[in-house]
Amino acid sequence: MASHADTHEHYHQPGLQHQFEDMKQQEESVSIGMWLFLVQEIMFFGGLFTVYLVFRSKFPIAFAAGSNHLDAFWGGLNTLVLIVSSLTMALTVYYAQRGNRNMQVIMIVLTMLFGATFLGVKAIEYTDKYNHGTIPVDGWNKKTKKGEKPEHASIVLPFETKVSAAEAKPGAEEHPYVNERGVFQITEHDLELVAQEKDTLTESERIGYYSGDVLDPAKFRDKIRIFFWIYFVMTGLHALHMIIGLGLMAWLLWKAWTNTFSADYYMPVEMSGLYWHFVDIVWIFLFPLLYLLGRHFLH
């Protein structure tokens, strides 16, 4: 391209683009640009958090009941996995600044490994939801006939209070898990929860769960369904960001492998790092807001 004729004439530095005077100006521009991109990402997820806030303030019991279907062990494990990947990402930048190619490559590979682990755990969790009929769309769940046993992908820890643990209580045998059409299902246990809290329900909850004076399981189920809809959209978009992040990492790996980065030119590593840390921060909020509602005291 003709407009680039100048670029090669005054070629000061590797990676310096023609519109900038020097590397400092370029680094400053790129980093401000990346931060503004993150601001827009924060507002993007902010819309989702607003949705969450509105519905949670309207239907807190339904949200707590829905949250109890999630496995806080996997959620917590994933939080740790992401934090480790953030550490390795930070170290990638650290080594890129020092031009240490081998450590860079190792750290990028580790980051990718932990990122993939996160997605793997997410897949286990989604499968679990599929098997238990908690995907909010009717017909998208596993279709289970009478007599079949649902699979349990989750681990029950001693201190963990779970719906699956509640299912194992005596009495669960009389209500075997049947979901012939793959609809969204809630358990008896959820209804017990709302019955316990009968006296402290807010006006909007009373309207939301009751038909007249009687608790309406279908109406209550639909409120839990909203929780799961929000759960899938939020974690799904987060997972999408993780996948994009893995793509970035693959590109970085190739760049680092070919020894592109040095103490003078490491902006791509630093910028990808910002993105990766941002995705981690989103999860830091998603974990308590989705997994840890009413963990203990609603049982």
Binding site: A72, L292, H296
Partner: peptide
């Protein structure tokens, strides 16, 4: 960060 994660997990089990 790890301590924070563990703390947030156990804080949720206390009413």
């Amino acid at each position: 960060l790890v301590v924070g994660t563990i703390a947030t997990y156990f804080a949720a089990t206390i009413d």
